[in-house]
Design a binder for these strands. Structure first.
Lengths: 348, 348
DNA sequence: CTGTTAGCGCATTCAT
DNA sequence: ATGAATGCGCTAACAG
């Protein structure tokens, strides 16, 4: 196996043609006679020829791959988006280079790596980027699209949080509940802010007074939201707080800003020998696997689709002659859906 | 933003040096005077220079990235392995190119793509490859390591299935159970075969007769194991079969070859108004998230570590002058662990 | 339709 | 320690 790899020159020689022709059959150019094409292909096979992606890239100024920046791809949400991205890139025959930006330290390092190493034609980021970082992308003329982030200064695609929260609360309202608690994440998360907005909107649209005491944000428990924003522990503590109140101040339904939080709440409820949906109606957000297993009513988000569509936006940008020439950015909003299961009951 | 990107020539000119020198500071060669180094770096900053990965790769004959072939990275197992791989590659400053080989069709397509496009220095495959495919890798001189597959003709790393099954059964044995049912996956899976072996070994080592009627493989339900091998539906059906037997033939403990199967079994049990661990002791395999939530005793596998170590093996091969020169392959075996929770009770 | 030539951006000799 | 020349494997523009 000592023979070094064949290149187009070898193939050209073997086939008795010029390298230009070889290149043409490689790129499926139509301007090649069927017969010569066959000759070349035979030579390729014989020499076990494999085109060199780097050389092609260098010559064509295109890598045919895109970077994906994701934090903790352990979480269902990211996995699903990633799958969508994968599917989307496949359509364009692009390869997917994965960068984990879990920790802050990695974040810096990987972003600058993607930025400095010219290894990809574009970038998909499934998390929040600072304005400075976004600016660097523009400066580098490197196409970027933000997924799950509403941003005006760059291409982005995200899910309508306000609507999601509204759908959840409306469902509860429809079932006859009027005392609804909202277990939110910390308000430094834009998603938390918008979901809160949706909750309030749903309430006020129904002419219900907004009981601020039932709107519990995650900011009260900073130690529980350091790593991740919408944790189980957070939901548990939030629910405990509610459970500790006098009976007349109790809500009849709980809307948690994430399924994980809902599960935390559920545990707190069960610890008091109470149950769902008998004592409390409970609704989550995300529709993770666990939600199905626990029969939890929840809001499902089109994660896969978001990833897939994100790619389309990116490719549009990549294909453009000068990515950031026009200062006009694409921004797409997707709709979340209510998934009704068995954790909410009708109030008589 | 119309100015085209700077290259080493531009930098060299700006700094008043030759391109060789620029290249040297880029590669952190020691043979450059501190002062000129600074000049060059300043020029780089000024021109906003970003080295071109493809050009470097072409010149150096190295891509600095590795491909990872994984089926359905939705599953916990693959996600964990992937995280390990990610971590491992980071250590070597290698990039990770992700290929989804979920379906058979994708399998073919992506493998041949990785093989034909010279885009990576090596490949990690987290699933079964045919001998022919393995041969093609060798032929292409492309380093390959198989993860979670015992294979002698190529580098590989995997977890000791026999031992895992043994640990599970031994635990049950220690608790005083002697009538233990094994809900296995289909035997076309090498993992299923080995786990069965482990079960039998544990039993016979304890001088217990092996009750074949309690060893239920997944092959009986081909329609339930088409997509995936160790499914919830399968576990459910297998358990139903057991539940349908006369009382005297009932086991006291159930060992499922996957947590998912265990969950299926659990559902079947609960449907009969029986419960775990009161009526049956239940133990799973994999230690997925759900197992923790359900308090299921199970066998945990060092997935992360396996991914990480897989990278080490790969890098060894990549760094070697001629990857497949010596016909000697590395093969590492990792140990699974018993995780005791609350789904098994002591038999009096 | 096909062969030839000139880059693509960098690493790496080989001189100096 | 540094500059100049050569080649990595391929595409694209040009000439025929």
């Amino acid at each position: 196996m000592g023979e070094k790899e064949a290149n187009i020159y070898d193939v050209a020689e073997e086939a008795g043609v010029g390298i230009g022709t070889v290149s043409r059959v490689l790129n499926e150019s139509q301007k090649v006679k069927q017969k010569t094409r066959e000759k070349v292909q035979k030579a390729m096979n014989k020499l076990n020829y494999r085109p060199d992606a780097m050389a092609r890239g260098l010559a064509r100024q295109r890598t045919n791959s895109a970077a994906v920046l994701v934090p903790a791809f352990t979480e269902h949400f990211f996995v699903e988006v990633l799958r969508g991205v994968q599917k989307g890139l496949e359509k364009y025959e692009m390869d997917l280079v994965l960068y984990d930006v879990g920790s802050q330290e990695k974040k810096e390092r990987h972003v600058s790596r993607v930025l400095n190493e010219k290894k990809v034609d574009g970038v998909l980021a499934i998390y929040t980027l600072s304005p400075e970082t976004i600016a660097s992308f523009k400066k580098a003329d490197l196409p970027l699209v933000l997924i799950n982030e509403a941003e005006e200064k760059i291409d982005s695609i995200f899910i309508n949080d306000i609507l999601g929260a509204r759908k959840a609360v409306d469902h509860l309202l429809d079932l006859g509940h009027s005392d609804i608690a909202f277990l939110n994440g910390p308000l430094h998360s834009p998603h938390a802010v918008k979901r809160l907005k949706g909750v309030k909107k749903a309430l006020s649209d129904s002419r219900l007074e907004i009981r601020e005491d039932l709107l519990i944000s995650g900011d009260l428990y900073p130690e529980l939201t350091e790593e991740s924003d919408f944790t189980e522990e957070l939901g548990c503590e939030q629910m405990k707080k509610i459970l500790g109140r006098p009976e007349k101040k109790q809500p009849t339904a709980i809307f948690a800003a994430s399924d994980i939080q809902a599960i935390g709440a559920l545990k707190a409820i069960e610890k008091e020998d109470l149950s769902v949906p008998e004592d409390y109606s409970l609704i989550g957000y995300d529709d993770i696997d666990l939600a199905r297993h626990l029969n939890l009513t929840t809001i499902s988000q089109p994660m896969f689709k978001m990833g897939e569509m994100g790619v389309d936006i990116l490719m549009e940008r990549i294909t453009a002659d000068s990515p950031y020439e026009d200062k006009k950015f694409i921004s797409r909003k997707l709709e979340p859906d209510l998934v009704i299961r068995n954790s909410c009951r009708k109030l008589n």
